[in-house]
Design a binder for these strands. Structure first.
Lengths: 233, 233
DNA sequence: CGGTTATGTGACAGTTTTGTAAAAAACGAG
DNA sequence: CTCGTTTTTTACAAAACTGTCACATAACCG
């Protein structure tokens, strides 16, 4: 499946149009009609991107945007705002608040989709739709398969998600806590060292004898995919 | 503000308009009339953002964009493209190539400025936050990597934090007490001379034979990054 | 100069962090 | 329920890093 997109829009007709079209593009769409629903949705399952109508019943778009930017775990989520024509003031305040892009109604679906893809690519460089690539490693979310070069790599579900998370930002160091959050879920309690074990298994599955290890251990910090390796492969 | 913006635009009148207005906003603007000049300008002093006309004499905007994206050191630089009305094909190809945003001529200066600021804020992790540079030394907090020139420098956690602190204000002298505070934490008790040992280790890791030492000892005061060195490198 | 103080640095013993095998527990398809 | 797979925990060894000390150098000062 594609990225998760949260659409915050009170106009039911437009909301449905968006849901339908984005869904067709392979995004997993969730809809929230107002600010409270939006924050709830964000809590329940973190979207990869938010499309935010600027005019909402109770809480203004600007307020939601501010709240999203305020929390550390959502700070990185890109926001596209939808404004009515000619609200240039709002627009500028929107950018101030930290929106990443905006579209003026009415807008073309093609354009919205292009902008969404652009922002997502910027956020998660290796992910183009369902397939992520890092050097000679390929991870396909659709078929749940991983390949290295021409060989098939068998991973258990946990190793698969682990690699998936690491590949969302190659090179970035994820702490064990962050990995627990993202791979196991923020409500599950497991020993921190379990991460190490699974990283070990991921390595064993990924590396045949003589191949360089794409997983980097950063002492006292966590694990990351090694950009050096990517360059060499 | 004060970010460096490279404007690649062959139409002299528009170029001047851009230069003037962006300058007024506090950006440091450099102008290149064609692709070759653009690449040269990028080499000479890396811009923080590129405004790129899509229709250029020799090399098309798309080609420049591709080249910018191909090099690791410019991969993260955001690109805004300027297109004539109705070239929707170009637009989509532009996003494919990795442009981050686009504007259709004619556009309002306010809007361009807003978009530039938004992109710069989004890139902040790279420009203002996560990567520090001092001369030929680079410290990346996201990947936990340090490089000197083209060589990878391996540091232990303590040396890493130490360099991090020093790089937060290059040239400033930090007393050993201050370094203990900031690197070890103000609640830890360790001998003051431990700082010296770690500075020594940092030096050893940073300097290959024949290279000048970027760390300056200030007798009876502390340590600092040497601005003399920065100038020379 | 000689005396004094500050810094550089090798060695080392102790600590922390990581890799990993193996056991135990959990899970899932028949 | 049973078997095979996967996950989690645990324990231990290996590796990496740390803080301290002692002594060698270097800088300062009258």
């Amino acid at each position: 499946m594609g990225a998760k997109v949260l659409v915050v829009e009170d106009d039911a007709a437009l909301a449905e149009l968006l849901t339908y079209n984005l869904g067709k593009e392979g995004f997993e769409v969730r809809h929230a009609p107002d600010g409270d629903e939006a924050l709830l949705a964000i809590d329940e399952d973190m979207p990869d991107l938010i499309v935010l109508d600027w005019m909402l019943p109770h809480m203004s778009g600007i307020e939601i945007c501010r709240q999203v930017r305020a929390r550390p775990e959502t700070r990185e989520v890109p926001v596209i705002m939808l404004t009515a024509r000619g609200e240039e003031d709002d627009l500028l305040r929107g950018f101030e608040t930290g929106a990443d892009d905006y579209l003026t109604k009415p807008f073309s679906m093609t354009e919205l989709v292009a902008r969404i893809k652009s922002l997502l690519r910027r956020m998660r460089p290796t992910i183009a739709g369902n397939v992520a690539t890092f050097g000679d490693i390929t991870l396909d979310r659709e078929t749940c398969r991983v390949r290295r070069g021409s060989r098939d790599v068998h991973l258990g579900p946990t190793e698969f998600r682990l690699l998936d998370v690491l590949m969302q930002r190659p090179g970035r160091v994820f702490s064990r806590e962050q990995l627990l959050d993202r791979v196991w879920g923020h409500d599950v309690y497991v020993e921190i060292r379990t991460v190490d074990v699974h990283v070990g298994r991921l390595r064993k599955a990924l590396n045949r004898r003589g191949e360089p290890d794409p997983v980097r251990t950063v002492r006292s910090a966590g694990y990351a995919l090694d950009e050096t390796y990517k360059a060499s492969a």
